[in-house]
Write a protein that binds this DNA or RNA. Structure first.
Length: 544
DNA sequence: CTAGGGTTAG
């Protein structure tokens, strides 16, 4: 009986999608203002007498629910009617809870719900989406396992969600298992599912797999093409992104604003800053509409180049294009002004923002820190620390630790590092490199060794930033042997690794060692820069 | 129930 009931409900609701609501206009108006929902209104409305009418009514209501109170209210109302047995409404309720960020309420409702609902794919998909969209990837996959064990087969909405969860968990083996599941279930030609698979392999850094799937597609959408361009961008492959973009044009598809955004992002990520700005110009010449995301990319490039006039021009586009209320665009503007040295403009922008997130705070802290105003940076950091519901994260801590370190105020930098550790915020490679540079400046070998121990325990030795920091710290503290050992163990040395090692030997008068490293560097095919030559010359001058 | 793009720490 329940099944028949839910069938009827679904058909009613799909009919509603194509026609206008059949509620009287005065009540329809109240739907658009969810704050005016009152229990009495719901239950006493004369037009809701039959099952279907209640069902349509509650669906409509749930769609507009925002916040705990409203969801609970409607939920309570549903329970008082016999629509509470509806599988369809159960799914809608899960979606409503999830949309309001109440994932635990959604999960609780799902867990305590009727067993009959467990065969309802709509409900499974809703709870999966609730989990995936809130970053609960592991639980999402457990749910998928559970539903498979119960003999419920996923559909074209289930698999994209499961694949997405896999992509974020970054486990290739698991991802391949889900991929084979997709094939078993016959979804290898499902556009949405294949797009999601391509994106998954892109996120896992396996562009070979992504490419093979893409090339074998019989039908591609804009999303398929854009996922390829953006996946190449994500993997710092500017050539791959450009090739895809061109191929798109060759096949007669006009790249859309999202394609352009990904192309620009690929250039920005590869450090091709001038080219990014040129591409932005080309985009405008071709009359492609700009997006908030592309403005954020271009602003970040302007920040790196510290080209304030260009940055101010983009600020103009932001205002004219109506993008100024996009939080991430405002954040990019703060950062741009900060990197261009216009801290006051950044501060003014920050103060004028209607809503701020942690990125906004971190951007402002960094502005002050980069300008050498570490006391001001610390003031903002303290304000963030006193915030009612935001806590400084590793980026906030790194910014302020780095700020003091950069200014030569090592003791304060180390004190902040200790405080950070004491409250259990985990240091990452950026934090470690700042602290190591303090150890090098203050020549505190003991602390440096301690940090080295931490690096080993946290499995950060492979990180180039950390490796270079250790080499610098050991050589500056006079421990050449240790420094050289760490240097030798860096798998993919960069220019900075070589320069640090040469300078390390040079400043202590070990000219011959410095020269030997210099020749090894040349043999490895590295092109020395002016810093290399200064280091080599100073090493030689010590020897005479 | 409908996928793709973005900003902050070195």
């Amino acid at each position: 009986m329940l099944h028949a009931l839910s069938q009827r409900f679904i058909s009613t609701s799909s009919r509603l999608r194509h026609t206008h609501s059949r509620f009287p206009p005065n009540l329809s108006r109240s739907f658009s203002k969810p704050r005016h929902i009152h229990q009495t209104q719901i239950i006493s409305h004369p037009s809701c007498t039959t099952h279907n009418e209640f069902l349509d009514f509650f669906e409509h209501l749930l769609r507009q629910c925002t916040g705990h109170k409203q969801c609970k209210q409607v939920h309570a109302q549903i329970i008082t009617t016999d629509t509470s047995q509806s599988e369809f409404l159960a799914a809608k309720l899960v979606t409503a809870y999830a949309r309001s960020g109440l994932i635990f309420d959604a999960q609780k409702f799902f867990d305590t719900g009727p067993v009959e609902g467990r065969s309802n794919l709509l409900l499974w998909n809703s709870i999966l989406r609730a989990n995936v969209s809130h970053g609960f990837y592991e639980p999402a996959l457990k749910l998928y396992d559970k539903m498979t064990n119960l003999g419920v087969f996923g559909d074209g909405f289930t698999f994209p969600l499961v694949i997405r969860a896999c992509a974020f968990l970054d486990r290739l083996k698991l991802s391949k298992k889900v991929h084979s599941h997709v094939l078993q279930m016959g979804f290898q030609n499902h556009l949405h599912v294949v797009n999601e698979l391509i994106g998954m392999y892109g996120k896992l850094g396996r562009m070979d797999f992504a490419r093979r799937l893409f090339d074998r597609m019989r039908l591609r959408s804009y999303v398929s093409w854009n996922i390829m361009v953006s996946s190449y961008a994500f993997n710092y492959d500017c050539d791959g992104a450009t090739e895809m973009f061109r191929r798109m044009e060759l096949e007669g598809l006009e790249p859309n604003p999202v394609s352009w955004t990904s192309l620009l992002s690929s250039h920005a990520r590869c450090g091709l800053r001038e080219e990014t700005i040129q591409l932005f110009g080309m985009m405008r010449v071709r009359g492609v509409g700009t997006t908030a995301e592309v403005l954020a990319v271009v602003l970040s490039v302007c920040a790196d180049l510290a080209v304030v006039d260009k940055g101010k021009m983009i600020h103009g586009y932001v205002i004219r294009g109506g993008f100024k209320d996009y939080l991430f665009v405002e954040n990019a503007l703060i950062c741009m002004y900060g990197k261009c040295g216009l801290v006051e403009d950044a501060d003014k922008l920050f103060l004028g923002m209607e809503s701020k997130n942690l990125v906004s705070w971190n951007a402002l802290i960094s502005c002050y820190a980069e300008s050498g105003l570490c006391d001001e940076a610390f003031t903002i950091f303290s304000q963030l620390n006193d915030h009612p519901f935001m806590r400084p994260n590793i980026i906030s801590w790194s910014a302020v630790i780095g700020g003091f370190s950069y200014k030569g105020r090592g003791e304060e930098s180390l004190e902040l590092f200790r405080q950070m550790q004491s409250i259990g915020v985990m240091a990452n490679s950026v934090t470690i490199s700042s602290v190591l540079s303090v150890c090098a400046e203050l020549a505190v070998l003991n602390l440096g060794k301690e940090i080295h121990g931490h690096v080993v325990r946290a499995l950060m030795q492979a990180n180039i930033l950390v490796g270079n920091g250790l080499v610098n710290m050991y050589t500056k503290c006079g421990s050449f042997k240790q420094g050289h050992l760490v240097f030798e163990n860096i798998d993919s040395k960069d220019l900075i690794s070589w320069n640090t090692m040469i300078a390390g030997y040079g400043m202590h008068g070990l000219g011959e060692n410095a020269l030997r490293i210099f020749y090894q560097m040349l043999e490895s095919g590295f092109k020395p820069d002016n810093i290399t030559f200064i280091a080599v010359l100073s090493a030689c001058s010590h020897v005479g």
